[in-house]
Design a protein around this nucleic acid. Sequence first.
DNA 1: CGTACGTTTGATCTTTCTCAATAATGGTGG
DNA 2: CCACCATTATTGAGAAAGATCAAACGTACG
Lengths: 262, 262
Amino acid sequence: MLPPLCGRLTLDRPPEHPLQNLLRKLQLHHRLGGEDRQAVLDLPFKRRLLEAQSYLVREGDVPDRCAVIVSGYAFRHKLTGDGSRQILAIHIPGEAVDFQNMFLDEADHNVQMLTRGEVAEIPRHSLEELALARTEVGRAILITTLVEASIFREWTLNIGRRDARSRIAHLLCEFAYRLTAQGLSPGSDYELPMTQEQLADATGLTAVHVNRVLKGLVADGLIERDRRVIRFPDFKRMRDVGDFNARYLHTLPPQDGHLHLG
Amino acid sequence: MLPPLCGRLTLDRPPEHPLQNLLRKLQLHHRLGGEDRQAVLDLPFKRRLLEAQSYLVREGDVPDRCAVIVSGYAFRHKLTGDGSRQILAIHIPGEAVDFQNMFLDEADHNVQMLTRGEVAEIPRHSLEELALARTEVGRAILITTLVEASIFREWTLNIGRRDARSRIAHLLCEFAYRLTAQGLSPGSDYELPMTQEQLADATGLTAVHVNRVLKGLVADGLIERDRRVIRFPDFKRMRDVGDFNARYLHTLPPQDGHLHLG
DNA sequence: CGTACGTTTGATCTTTCTCAATAATGGTGG
DNA sequence: CCACCATTATTGAGAAAGATCAAACGTACG
């Protein structure tokens, strides 16, 4: 008997098609018609359960498949010559981890599971065929990939030009926003599946300093923490501190209401 | 009578098709057959001469065309709420500035000319048609865009996890390497068209500190400077200081020899 | 219940920033 | 060609954010 893979996030959801959340993600950026939607769901895939820390992609790999996160979280990172790590992105269920590498000769960075979780592996050629056969699906994939690039740019700004407090606040806002947009956040709080060291590697800081900044945010009533669950008592104020503006996420207005983090 | 647009770079080159260097750039990452090459050159475009600092793209713009740099340099940047600037990329002749925005609803960052120069503006729909009609051209564009994303990631690593000296050395190495790969560098030295303030905004530092680091590099014999011309007496050593490994640039081995920066 | 991992805390050190002033440099109009 | 102006580069002194080192404390889990 397996423990729940991703805590609160997958618990009270009825079993659904494993690629349903990929579809949701694609449509966050480009709406698809019924046939196109079905074609995405019809993609062949292999489910795989992965432990935390296991590698989805290693630098130098020649990509022959594309993993889509079904449950759990993953992260991209690369290392400097002397071994320090920079986390480049956090990925949530529904996101395809290999769009960035799939068309290149070899991977230029690593992708690892952040938590235990499940992925659906789609053969590269199936995805390529689909993208060519169905223009709109191809376009949705392209746009989703470009949005990822936009997020890389915002992270560069975040790390290059904001102070520690803003950086962390920004990261927390982005994560909350993306979870909510993807329909994965139950409300104003969520489980942040990262250690403080990982948070540090994502923001260009040290774990010690992250710890102090986090305490500062709590002291100022900007966040509440219990273990790794984060709550925002006042998202607006948090957004200000993090200088967060969701434009760079290029999320379409929701089809069915909500997504109003204040 | 116009002054030379880009100094040594365009001076002693015979007049060629303005899109020739776009073709060269695309083929740095994906080789194209004769018909595909011709189709790229047959794209319609409008030439435009731009002063330094003039905007090619503004955040919020709805993109309807794609500018390709014919001569001169450009840079991408975005601003924080309190106005500090992060430069995200430098672009050299042959590079298309709008692949990152063209398929999105609106631009999420700015692109400005770094120097005076000329661009060729291609209507968005012509480029889209070509990409759909000729799979391999579409693929070349996609790959080139993914390589840009790879560069964004390397910059994040650079700013997040390297010290000031390495950051600057890395930037200088990347620029030299890309110029050489694109056939634009006359040898071991090149004109770096950036002020120290721009260098600072590209590396997440201040101009004052950039100045000191640059002096340090000169003092250690790693670079020689005359005005804004930089020379590397020993590229290997520079590469070590900058922790530079060209893998992330995904450049194909040259078709015709050279590209050996030591 | 012990071990490994993550968090928290304090003390101290370094890199980088800030502020401010001075010196070059490049381009402009006369 | 020269004087002038705006930018850019350079330098110094002091301040600050964040890093480093080291230890103690929690917590989860086998």
